[in-house]
């Protein structure tokens, strides 16, 4: 079976990359192909990278509180480009209320502080398998 390809992305001005880097390594250690965008990516840059790298999953890491401005834009661009099949997950400091709204937009999962690496790896594996 082909390895799952994941884009780990840091949108917005937020420079807190500890979580994104730990997740990137954990997914890689779990056998996935991981592309890390680095900091300060616009939604356009992220979606273009996802297209070029042909990923099945985009993991957005946002700790600045700007998720309500950024995530809807990413979802919209994915739809415009016909990339609805890409699984989008969001991690960071996301209040419950906002997490519910993001899921309505099509975000597959929101991982809040304290989520375990195992939980995230398992979620991505099982979700990608279902859609394959």
């Amino acid at each position: 079976m082909d390895r799952i390809r994941v884009l780990v992305a840091k949108p917005g001005l937020d420079g807190h990359d500890r979580g994104a880097k730990v997740i990137a390594r954990a997914l890689r250690d779990a056998g996935m192909e991981v592309i890390y965008t680095g900091l300060r990516q616009t939604p356009e840059m992220i979606v273009n990278a996802a297209l070029q790298e042909d990923v099945q999953v985009i993991g957005l890491s946002i700790l600045s509180g700007a998720h309500n401005a950024i995530v809807p834009r990413v979802m919209e661009l994915l739809r415009e480009k016909g990339m609805d099949d890409v699984l989008v997950t969001v991690g960071g400091i996301i209040p419950d209320e906002d997490a519910r709204e993001l899921k309505k937009l099509g975000v597959a999962a929101v991982f809040q502080p304290g989520a375990s690496l195992e939980e995230i790896v398992d979620f991505i594996r099982s979700s990608v398998k279902q859609t394959a």
Partner: peptide, 22 residues
């Protein structure tokens, strides 16, 4: 907030959604 820390005014395009947040 992040725009201030990065040397952007509140009306800069990249400040959208970040003004007054952190």
């Amino acid at each position: 907030d992040l725009p201030t820390l990065m040397g952007y005014d509140a009306d800069h395009a990249t400040s959208e959604g970040e003004v007054g947040k952190c």
